[in-house]
Design a protein around this nucleic acid. Structure first.
Lengths: 193, 193
DNA sequence: ATATAAATTTTCTTTTGAAGAAAAAAAATA
DNA sequence: TATTTTTTTTCTTCAAAAGAAAATTTATAT
């Protein structure tokens, strides 16, 4: 996907699309960007790479940042529109060194450069684990029970229905406060930070 | 943020950071990318813009796509590391034309070009609403109760603990099957599609 | 259907800045 | 302190971007 031919064509198609959204002719974009009509044509037709300064001049009147511009390059969306999973179909996975931690994968999905993983975590009475870190963000919703969540040097007391959202690089671990099990919905937003 | 000086410096800093993650010296990246050490130095120091072909050559051994590369340009991260919300602190919001639908905002957060909104939705006995559409994806977890979820021309029957994840552009609406309330955790991933 | 105008593409030429080689400087190691 | 390694800077070359102008295509008017 970093193939030069693909990228030069993609850049051109994307600029043409963005110009189309504004309803501008080449001449209009040329006026606003100070890039010649001929050059814009060659770029849009994938004949040449713009230099960065030229690209920035083009994107400015289009009101698009580089992150916006490149964010959907290489993406293929063949998502059927929905994923439906029954409670009993969640697949159990147990992580190593995590006594009393029962993970069940609800679903995984990619979303705009972020990897989404949703799991249910059941903590038994004697659940015990060392702190861990992950690349990305994490959201915890306490479905049932009562826990303490250790996050770096802080500890949060969660009751049923409470939420915690945090940076996964902070060392973290939950602890069950009850003699019965506690159940958490855990959502990982895995991404480079 | 599309200022040339900013961008040339950002590109350089980003490449240096990525090279650092791999623990490579300039000479090592030069060997793998076929770009000269001198050129890499000038790029990393923000002295010159690479051309796109050169940038692609550099990113290939670093195993980074253009969307990954540019996705955090311009972002400011002043997230404190966590957001903790108690169940009783969720703010109730009621949407118009949604009789029997009680929404409570759990949290909102931006994440890599995706706007994250987490809510609890309580459907009363007579809850009724027209179908809606949203820009982005939606995840539903049934905390309590029994519902039917109409999604475009399909209907899903959800029991407690079941999940549904779908493209928000599909017209959708839930319906409570019980005489008592049903409660859903709803997560919106709002983004342009 | 034809002529004209508008828009875009292609060709030719110039300009410019990227890119590498080599020298110089800085940093690391012995 | 000396040597080696790594990085930066300077100098030079040249490749490709960039614009002007010509050619072509598309749209519009008659």
């Amino acid at each position: 996907m970093n193939d030069g031919k693909y990228v030069v064509a993609w850049i051109g198609a994307k600029i043409r699309e963005l110009r189309g959204l504004k309803g501008w002719k080449l001449g209009e974009l040329s006026e606003k960007s100070k890039v010649s009509i001929a050059m814009l044509s060659k770029i849009e037709n994938g004949r040449v790479f713009p230099t960065f300064p030229t690209l920035l001049h083009i994107l400015k009147p289009l009101d698009v940042d580089l992150n916006d511009f490149f964010e959907d390059i290489g993406q293929s969306q063949d998502f059927p529109g929905y994923i439906f999973n029954k409670r009993e179909d969640y697949l159990e996975t147990t992580k190593e060194d995590a006594v009393g931690f029962k993970y069940e994968t609800v679903l995984t999905q990619n979303l705009k450069g972020v990897s989404l993983e949703i799991s249910m975590l059941t903590l038994s009475k004697n659940a015990k684990r060392e702190t861990v870190t992950t690349d990305g963000y994490e959201y915890i919703f306490l479905l049932k029970g009562d826990i303490e969540y250790q996050l770096d040097d802080k500890t949060f007391h969660l009751k049923e229905g409470d939420s915690l959202y945090f940076d996964g690089r902070l060392p973290h671990v939950p602890k069950n406060n009850l003699d019965t099990e506690s159940i958490l919905l855990v959502i990982y937003f895995i991404t480079e930070l």
